[in-house]
């Protein structure tokens, strides 16, 4: 009985691991192609991302927003929703957090910081619940609406940060947030902040909600079989809206962390696809909060190490993008990997 459970968990890990190994192997081919030694290049990649405390801190700092957006996508997925709108929810959450950060003055840190975090969560939750509501009440597919709302969020925050809330400098950004709303830097001069703890806390909370509460039972049931959920007395519409709101809140937290921990102001289009990367992170993390944490760290490490690899070898940093794409490809092609593994077993 116990063995069975463990076997299933172990199997869950196989595909992501094999996918990463296969992607690195193919990446090695590209490295050979530009005339470098793959082992040497990968060594640089590893040392630069994990080799010292400072490098590790940078890796974690890059991973933190991906943990949030990955969890946002994973949470939606568990409730049967494909949230492509993490990017937009991230912008709205970021702007809300920034607004709380620069608007209120004279608040003690103990109040101001939590207020800004809650503001960011609510912003994301609001933006996420719009497509949730439309799906629940009108049956409009969430993929369409979340994609469209991404653009709305982008242009809305463009306007807010260059119009009514422009900071007055020549760059398109808002005023700085007050120091009382900023997250604490953990290991200067790296930019790793206490946002990391927030992400780990969020992962734990997501795990508990999904698997240890009545609400989580309902959310997952709706995701796996809405007809059976309805038969079991579960309100499918309510759970759909709630799932999108929580998913949006997690994406909003990604933006919040970036503003309060890194940029300290809202900068127009600061995200560079953190929300979309969340889809890849969720996929690699098998839509489990702890898996998402690991996947985000891997992606953070690849980004951190790629700069050094670019600098020290003839391998261009775009290789990392290729490897990331290959990882996603292989995870998505799970069926293929299982077949390869089975063939090996047979031989």
């Amino acid at each position: 009985m116990q063995n069975r459970t463990r076997a299933i968990r172990w199997q869950e890990m196989v595909t992501p691991l094999v996918a990463v190994i296969l992607a690195l192997a193919i990446g090695a081919g590209f490295i050979l192609f530009v005339g470098e030694n793959p082992l040497a290049a990968y060594k640089i990649l590893f040392v630069e991302s994990f080799g010292s405390l400072r490098n590790l801190a940078t890796t974690l700092q890059r991973a933190t927003p991906l943990m949030f957006t990955g969890m946002a996508v994973a949470f939606g997925y568990r409730a049967g929703l494909f949230n492509i709108g993490a990017e937009g929810q991230l912008y709205i959450g970021a702007f809300a957090a920034a607004w709380v950060g620069f608007t209120f003055t004279g608040l003690p840190r103990l109040i101001h910081l939590p207020l800004a975090i809650v503001g960011g969560m609510l912003g994301g939750a609001l933006w996420g619940s719009i497509p949730g509501y439309l799906k629940a009440k009108l049956g409009v597919h969430e993929v369409i609406n979340t994609i469209m709302l991404n653009f709305v969020a982008l242009y809305l925050t463009d306007w807010l940060a260059t119009g009514p809330f422009h900071g007055g400098s020549w760059v398109p950004e808002t005023a700085r947030i007050k120091a009382t709303a900023a997250l604490t830097r953990l290991y200067p001069p790296t930019r790793l902040s206490t946002g990391l703890f927030l992400a780990l806390l969020a992962a734990l909370a997501v795990y508990l909600v999904l698997w240890k509460t009545k609400q989580g039972y309902e959310l997952r049931a709706v995701g796996l079989n809405p007809h059976a959920a309805e038969y079991g007395g579960i309100n499918v519409a309510k759970n759909t809206i709630l799932a999108m709101a929580i998913s949006g809140a997690l994406a909003g937290l990604a933006g919040t962390e970036q503003i309060l921990g890194l940029h300290n102001r809202f900068i127009v289009r600061f995200s560079a696809d953190l929300g979309f990367m969340g889809i890849a992170v969720a996929l690699l993390g098998k839509n489990h909060p702890f898996g998402v944490i690991l996947a985000a760290i891997l992606f953070g490490a690849l980004q951190t190490g790629s700069a050094a690899m670019d600098r020290l070898t003839a391998v261009p940093r775009e290789l990392i993008t290729i490897i990331q794409a290959l990882i996603i490809f292989f995870v998505a092609a799970e069926y293929l990997i299982r077949r390869i593994l089975r063939m090996k077993e047979g031989a």
Binding site: K214, Y217, E218, R220, A221, L224, N225, H227, A228, A229, Y231, G232, G233
Partner: peptide
């Protein structure tokens, strides 16, 4: 379609509606 969440465990299915 209605009676079971097939990917839920037997235990979880046995509380569907009583959860």
């Amino acid at each position: 379609r209605r009676g079971l969440v097939l990917d839920y465990s037997v235990a979880d299915n046995l509380i569907l509606g009583l959860h």
